[in-house]
């Protein structure tokens, strides 16, 4: 498989009254054609900013991409003009957000929003665009598409709106879709419907998917590869199987251990990640997970650990990976 997207040492910062927020602090990862890649991490770790940076949707002020490259099919998106970027957005890369209400226009009908995008990017007639819109709504499992096209976003439930967002994202047959917490606002039953839909469609149409989430369960079912983020950096990456069965970074390990699991016997006590999430304006040169880490050694204060290989296709940013892996083996 060829590489479709290559994020290379991307850095995005915000200037705030509290100081410089290093929201994305030198992340690198790639996505192959047709692949589903997950970005996981807790609130505020930089997942959305990372995605918005790829799309060049960071508002200035206060935010700015200050370094790195985003190579999509060989061209660096960071260097494109605004006009060129508008063509990439929607046409070549589609996006699905957590709250579809904020990304759908409330005063335009569903039909108009889809056909405008289709006509703008594909240059087809209104009639052809209408046909395409009906086809797309059918594809995402919306019944009576003709009637729905005349409705406004507020007529639809959250799950329906998310289906419309997916239809919009797919409308110009993009090579890549970025879905930022696509099911976080939805009930678990509707979440299952939307995820199955996205999985089916991306496989069938050969579209690559970056799915951003804090839900470790969602990732387990849908991702080929997983990137774990903490405080603006990727701290572990590997195939989904390796991340879940051989976590090699203390944060990944702690996160996996802290959630109760429906398929395992009930535990007497949960094993939480102690301490607080980091303040991104106050990071020093050491490892940012240090204040919460059970494995820390003196050296962790002095330098941020680079991503090192722990197995083929599996990297972790930690000086003590060997101890983490050994402890995991003993436990299981």
């Amino acid at each position: 498989m060829a590489t479709l997207l290559e994020v290379d040492n991307l850095q995005t910062q915000f200037l705030t009254s509290a100081g410089i927020v290093k929201a994305v602090d030198g992340i690198s990862y790639d996505v192959e054609e047709g692949e589903t890649v997950a970005i996981v991490g807790e609130s505020g770790c930089g997942k959305s900013v990372g995605a918005l940076s790829i799309m060049r949707l960071i508002p200035w002020p206060p935010g700015r991409i200050i370094g790195g490259a985003v190579r999509f099919q060989g061209k660096d998106l960071v260097k494109l003009s605004d006009a060129e970027m508008r063509h990439v957005r929607g046409k070549e890369i589609g996006m699905v957000f957590q709250e579809p209400m904020t990304s759908l226009n409330p005063v335009l009908t569903i039909g108009l929003q889809i056909t405008e995008t289709v006509r703008h990017h594909l240059g087809v007639t209104q009639e052809e665009a209408d046909k395409r819109a009906i086809e797309l709504l059918g594809l995402v499992g919306i019944s009576e598409p003709e009637r729905r096209l005349k409705q406004y976003p507020h007529h639809l439930s959250g799950g329906m709106r998310q289906r419309v967002m997916i239809a919009l994202a797919l409308s110009c047959e993009p090579k890549l879709i970025i879905a930022d917490e696509p099911t976080t606002a939805l009930d678990v039953t509707i979440q299952a419907q939307i995820l199955e839909l996205m999985k089916g469609l991306t496989r069938r149409l050969g579209v690559a998917l970056i799915v951003i989430t804090h839900n470790l369960g969602v990732v387990a079912r849908y991702a080929d590869r997983v990137n774990v983020m903490y405080a603006g950096k990727i701290v572990e990456r590997g195939r989904a199987h390796d991340i879940y069965h051989r976590p090699s970074h203390p944060y990944t390990l702690a996160l996996l251990k802290s959630v109760p699991r429906m398929d395992q016997p009930r535990k007497a006590k949960l094993d939480p990640v102690e301490g607080q999430p980091p303040d991104l304006t106050r990071l020093d040169e050491g490892c940012s997970f240090r204040p919460r880490c059970r494995f820390k050694v003196e050296h962790c204060e002095r330098e941020f650990p680079p991503l090192n290989s722990v197995a083929p296709g599996h990297v972790a940013a930690c000086f003590e990976t060997a101890r983490v892996v050994r402890l995991e083996k003993v436990a299981s």
């Binding site: 387990a220 879940y244 398929d263």
Partner: peptide
């Protein structure tokens, strides 16, 4: 409802 809950383990899923 119970069936819809994803389990954080790719093998199980």
């Amino acid at each position: 409802l119970l069936n819809a809950v994803p389990i954080p383990d790719p093998e199980v899923e």
